[in-house]
Amino acid sequence: MTPYQPRNFTLTDYRFAGDEALDIPPYLFSEPAVIAIDVALATGRPLLVAGPPGCGKSRLAEAMAALLGWNFLATTMTSHTRLEELTVEVDHLRRLHDAHCAAIPAPLPDPDKPPLPTAALKPDAAYYTPGIFWWTFDRRSASRRNLSPDVAAEYLIGLDFPGRERAQPNGEENTVLLIDEIDKAEPDLPNDLLEPLDRRSVRLPDGKTLSAAVGQELLTVITTNRERELPKAFLRRCVTLVLPEPDADGLTAIAQAHQPLAERARIRAIAERIIEFRAKVDEHGLRPPGTSEFLDAVRTCEKLQISVDGGDLWRQIEGAVLLKPAI
């Protein structure tokens, strides 16, 4: 069987080696994941990744940003997340404060002291707070809150990029955007995201629209643990990928990529115990241990040189890392 070779990125042996300098761990891709990412890049659609907690959904986005050499931006949804927070918000409080200061009459100049700077209300755009979509579509205007370079310099406005920026050829600003745990947001929020995701643009409070540049590449990765059903209209606009829990071979390969010096027999034994636990906890309706918990166990056993022999120490590891009791 010929493995699928993606057209839109280069990947050797379905394996990203990681980047120690940037603290990005290695990532092993499955063929369905490679195909789904290639389709998302080819069609320009968001990639919706579903799977149990700890199976590598968010890591996938980070690994892809490093692999493609693109900027990386990430945001995690909460029940309080609103669309404005992701596009643009107006800092009314600061504006009110500035207006209040500007209304105070300036004190009479003291000839013995240098003149005080007069407080003044800034242009409206100076109170915009750019959200993650604005940064993704047009990072230059976001860093200046959409003021002209001169005006931004006058008011000392220059915001830092809220993610990982990478130098790209020809000044390109291609970006991987991770919208993590969308199922934690209010059920209507995914529908609100349709407009910015579809049009690749954000509308500012003054009515102007900021769009991504023609030719700018974007990979939006949206993750869900499937705690909630997502709206059908949203699902029909996304390329979907379901990441299953890896089997014992897959777990062993992942652990070896993360811990190349770890003892293989120990990794294998822990992987087999994980598979055993999964079956057990499913019977009892508990949450099965995920890949990230498996890696924690491998790391702990390697560091403390604990063998998987059912002894007291191993049982402690089981309880603390793998079979977490219901609290």
């Binding site: 069987m1 010929t2 699928y4 070779q5 993606p6 057209r7 195909i35 290639d38 389709v39 080819a42 069609t43 320009g44 659609r45 047009d138 579809d198 049009r199 690749r200 643009s201 102007k208 629209t209 900021l210 769009s211 991504a212 540049a213 023609v214 209209a233 029909r236 606009r237 996304c238 390329v239």
Partner: peptide, 28 residues
């Protein structure tokens, strides 16, 4: 000045599937 706004893509349609199958290097 605003950049030209990309057109709305809407839902995934059959044309996109055909394009994807034509563009991507699947073998099996």
């Amino acid at each position: 000045m605003d950049r030209p706004q990309p057109h709305r893509k809407g839902e995934i349609h059959l044309g996109e599937l055909i394009e994807a199958l034509a563009e991507l290097p699947w073998q099996e």
